[in-house]
């Protein structure tokens, strides 16, 4: 029974954190079609923001505005210098952002060194829940993520900006024709996407290893999750996260982690092949 609860919570945790990590890429790849290979590096920058705040002796929460500013500014620069020339050329965005990712890793390496860094948990210890001990920070994190997604969902459905983004995604030419400034909206969307990635980095920093190359961990699985769930919807993103996260949890529990990893890859390949528009597609 304890084991069932543990696996249940682990499943919820992995779905929530994967969703959080993928969200930024969902905005950038799902809405703009930019295959941002530097996505993981923005998560990394977020984690380093948390580290900087910790080293300065400031409260952990301040890392959130810092990460948003750092990632947003860098994202703006990246959009202005490179990405805006490459919209609707997904392969080229893939290649260019791959180069940018190298620059970002090296930049952090120069500033902070190659060493592993440790960001303390602001809520250490475990909480007893349904008969098992579960890390307190994780529980809070899950609650934060769920709230965040709920707010985002409502905003995207209701707000004017959400409507304009949807219009731009569906038909950029038409959107431009009816007076939407797609260049500005694209830039804002891109900046938002990478800032969300940075936010994910802050929230995860106390739980994971922090080093210049950590971003690679998050990159490829993010793409697979997006494809499994289908691009462009929040529901799809959550479903994708739970399928990938769930497959990993279940296969790893029955066999081992290697099988779990191979299983996730196989599922991703099947989706890419048979249902590239996501699980809800009617094909």
């Amino acid at each position: 029974m304890d084991l069932v609860v543990t696996y249940g919570l682990n499943f919820a945790y992995s779905t929530a954190t994967l969703g959080l990590i993928v969200l930024g890429l969902a905005v950038v790849f799902g809405l703009l079609g930019v295959m941002n290979m530097a996505h993981g590096e923005f998560v990394m920058l977020g984690a380093y923001s948390a580290l900087m705040v910790q080293q300065a002796g400031l409260p952990f929460v301040l890392a959130i505005p810092l990460a948003v500013i750092v990632c947003g500014a860098l994202g703006w620069l990246m959009e202005w210098s490179v990405i805006r020339h490459l919209y609707r050329r997904p392969f080229d965005t893939f290649l260019a952002t791959w180069g940018i990712a190298i620059l970002m890793r090296k930049g952090v390496e120069v500033s902070f060194g190659r060493e592993y860094q440790s960001v303390d948990q602001s809520l250490p210890g475990t909480v007893s829940l349904m008969g098992i001990d579960y890390p307190a920070y994780r529980l809070v994190l899950m609650a934060v993520i769920v709230t965040m997604f709920a707010l985002l969902f409502v905003w995207y459905q209701r707000s004017n900006t959400g409507a304009r983004i949807k219009a731009m995604v569906q038909n950029p030419d038409l959107a431009a024709a009816v007076g939407i400034n797609t260049a500005r909206l694209s830039r804002a969307t891109f900046v938002t996407g990478v800032a969300i990635a940075g936010l994910a980095g802050v929230l995860l920093a106390p739980l994971v290893r922090v080093e210049p190359y950590m971003g690679l961990d998050y990159l490829l699985s993010s793409f697979f999750i997006l494809v499994v769930g289908g691009l462009g919807t929040l529901e799809g993103l959550i479903i994708g996260s739970s399928i990938i996260g769930g497959a990993d949890v279940v296969i790893s529990a029955i066999f081992d982690k290697t099988a779990g990893y191979l299983g996730v890859l196989a599922i991703s390949i099947l989706f890419l092949w048979l249902r590239p528009d996501g699980i809800f597609s009617r094909r």
């Binding site: 295959m35 392969f91 793409f223 697979f224 494809v227 191979l262 890859l265 390949i269 890419l272």
Partner: peptide, 28 residues
């Protein structure tokens, strides 16, 4: 043959499949 038969065009999905296959091969 398997992939292109289902998908016309040259979008990123084929590329991601080959990427996943390469990762699969590496792990194996």
């Amino acid at each position: 043959a398997l992939v292109f038969n289902r998908q016309t065009g040259s979008g990123p999905y084929f590329s991601l499949i080959t990427l996943a296959l390469s990762m699969l091969g590496f792990q194996l």
